[in-house]
Design a protein around this nucleic acid. Sequence first.
DNA 1: ACAACCTCCTGGGGGC
DNA 2: TGCCCCCAGGAGGTTG
Length: 304
Amino acid sequence: MPELPEVETVRRGLQKVFEGSALLRVNARRPDLRFPFPERFVERLEGRRVTALDRRAKYLLGRLDSGETLVMHLGMSGSFRIEEQAAPIPSPSQGEGRVGVLAASETPGDFVYPRSKDATHDHVLFEFESGARVAYNDPRRFGFMTIVETAELDAHPLFKDIGVEPLGEAFTPAHLAGLLSDVKAPLKSALLDQRRIAGLGNIYVAEALHRARLSPLKPAGEASRVKVKALHGAIRQVLEEAIEAGGSTLRDHRQADGALGYFQHTFAVYDREGAGCGHKGCRGMIARVVQTGRSTFYCPECQR
DNA sequence: ACAACCTCCTGGGGGC
DNA sequence: TGCCCCCAGGAGGTTG
């Protein structure tokens, strides 16, 4: 599912639930996703307050008051769902309530509110002190979660080789030119490589290259200075527009509140084989080719 | 060092 | 209706 805009959309949706709230209860309903959950996964989360929910590349980072970070990746089909904003757990001063203690009628580790129909793929359930409940759903289980010491995050194998944030200040035309110079691999693969730029995936690479009128097949190092500058602008622009639109909903992407993204209606090339190019004055037709096993969509007429 | 694969897993859609 | 094959937004791991 998710590339940078989808992950960022999810982050913004989850932020109001995660940030500042303590995790009362966490339920990992199976021992693994793509990888096994780390040692004492649940114990390291329960009772911890989430101080911030950040994003790096396509990862969500839940900063915990324990000095650890909950690292979450959505893989291809992962999504979060804010299940219900239940009544807050009453505080002791309000009488009967006992903070952190569940009502007897609740089944430990399960939501008491109605779940969506594909709850079989609800693999992790978060319940907050605020009463909010969040389900992580992932049919294909290519996603994963782990917990890393926050101070060691940048040096962690998952992050140490991750490239520049394309919406950050460090991503300039000159930086992009440096990333691509002397690279013999085609632009498509160069841009998909998370070690260069963090967060682009199959959709937004295709869309950005089309906007810049660059062929995905062209060796990255052969793009002209002018084209690289256009590509830089196109990458930023397409990502910003997609975030603004709430991401792209192809199959299962939802914003955390359940809303659909609608950037897919703006695709110029992705999954549009046979359609007209759409660039002013171009009579070309969108083609589909396969590069390293994955679909590439582009206009052979004007993307050079 | 690098690039081309293969792999994990489930579900949806098209063709017959 | 059913079955089979292909395809899918990622990316770590292995091979050459």
